[in-house]
Design a protein around this nucleic acid. Structure first.
Lengths: 139, 139
DNA sequence: CGGCATCCTTTACGATACTG
DNA sequence: CAGTATCGTAAAGGATGCCG
């Protein structure tokens, strides 16, 4: 077991399959590549209307925005408030759960900051050789 | 600015676009849903052969496994060692970078463990109402 | 054994048009 | 304004077969 530092428990042998599934679902959801961006904007701007979010998140389509927000709402990450006014008005904001998820991803964020150069270097080195041919270390 | 707690620096206003791109790429990569599983198995078992991994990761196809391992190798997350023997033999193991990425995802992992019930509850509540109709809190 | 190439099915996604 | 519905394209992914 390579790592045994100060973290209380590493879920390696005894891992609840429901947790594992949720982690993968979560990652998968966040990986639709829009969720994280929406989360960020809602973190930064607090409460936002639909069109506001569509404008804040660069290239998102309204279809994807709706889909993303629905999924996030279903998971309890965002709160959706509908005002029954004549021009429709819907506001979205993060729940506590949503904010805590954002914090949970800080580890990944910081990893990316810290190891950006290493990853770029590894990619350059990989691409430099014939990546389609006999790569890696051959013995 | 809604949050200003105890975290040293939140990359919100001054965020390197390369970092942001890497985070999304990273999430996107991990979200292919296989990377995390492969990472786990390599963490648990150390060095593995190709077929071994294919057996360890439940429903993965060899195509996806190859693709996943190539991408991870390119990013410097795994080390690929080819033995030029008569029945071909290829061994994969995590690099330090790969192990550190696994640790970075511990935050998400722990979040999933801690908030599993909340998410399941939120989903049940969402599904209970007509999720296709007038949902959420209407004012 | 490890993997690449091909085919084929499924899915994701964007664009467009329409509704309350 | 904030969606829903339909369509068409594009990409992901599984199955199969061949090669080193």
């Amino acid at each position: 077991m390579p790592q045994a530092e100060k973290i209380s428990f590493d879920p390696h042998p005894p891992v609840d399959p429901r947790v594992e599934m949720l982690v993968n679902e979560l990652i998968g959801r966040v990986a639709d590549k829009w969720t994280l961006l929406v989360l960020e904007e809602l973190e930064d701007h607090g409460t936002c209307r639909f069109t506001e979010l569509a404008r804040l998140v660069p290239g998102i389509s309204q279809k994807m925005l709706t889909q993303t927000l629905r999924a996030m709402e279903r998971d309890g990450l965002v709160h959706r408030q509908v005002f029954a006014v004549v021009p429709p008005k819907v506001e979205y904001c993060l729940t506590d759960l949503g904010r805590s998820l954002g914090e949970a991803f800080c580890g990944v964020w910081h990893w990316a900051e810290a190891h950006l150069c290493e990853v770029e270097g590894a990619r350059a080195a990989f691409d430099a050789r014939g990546e389609g041919s006999k790569s890696s270390s051959v013995i």
